[in-house]
Amino acid sequence: MLRDITLGQYYQADSPIHRMDARVKLIGTLVYIITLFLYKNLTIYLIALLFLGAVVKISKVPLSFILRGIKTIMILLVITAVFNMFLTPGEPIVSFWKFKLTWEGIANAFYLCIRLVFLIVGSSLMTLTTTPNQLTDGLESLLGPLKKIKVPVHEIAMMMSIALRFIPILLEETDKIMKAQMARGAEFDSGSLIKKVKALVPLLVPLFISAFRRANDLAMAMEARCYQGGEGRTKMKPLKYRKLDFGAFVVLGVYLAAAAVLGKLFPLNLIPL
């Protein structure tokens, strides 16, 4: 169950996407997300699907692995879809009591779900192909100009990389504690809601204690190494754009242009509006 959470997980493989500079991937993800929200028609989603499919194929990450992330937002998707279908004003198809199922609602629900799914898949693909360290290095470098207006960019990046690093550790810890309490007869997945909430106490208390202990140890280890913030710090692996990255920028540019132009000129609509 806990293994389904792909957020912040890295999938080891050797692919052009993996080798790419993290900054390119961050910008790429941003551009991709922008295109998803540019227009509300099918053309743009077809282009995005094509782009996403190609990137997934090149990245060598198995599709089943990427789709696991969607499982966890399934409930959110269903709720969003249902609310949109029934609460969007427009031409009613069926109506009962206060609710009306409308064509506009169905279209809205469809677009929203596609956007959410594409959003999750696209961004989890970025974290799957980029190690947390690369990711925060990239972010720090991209946000670098903000230092001029006294934004603590390095500290923010550091906090992010620690947070990302701790996700798998705490998940593993949770798994371990759950198993240990199950070995003492605890049940986490049965009984009434109140029972389930009560069952969380034996899980959360040790988990919090362990999180604090780890935070303490890490702070101690950082201090023992004389860690101090960003000023004057050099990098072991400085970020550098290479041929592959410039190529990726070109592809991104073409994708953005294609999405913007084709989406505007040839809008395919789901329903005749």
């Binding site: 504690i177 003492r184 007869g185 049940e187 208390v205 362990s210």
Partner: peptide
Amino acid sequence: GLVFQYPEHQLFEADVFSDVCFGPKN
């Protein structure tokens, strides 16, 4: 009965006695 590595990390009750009671209670 399975006692995991570092079992003391799984203690959670307010006192030792209640913690030992957790298993039989379940």
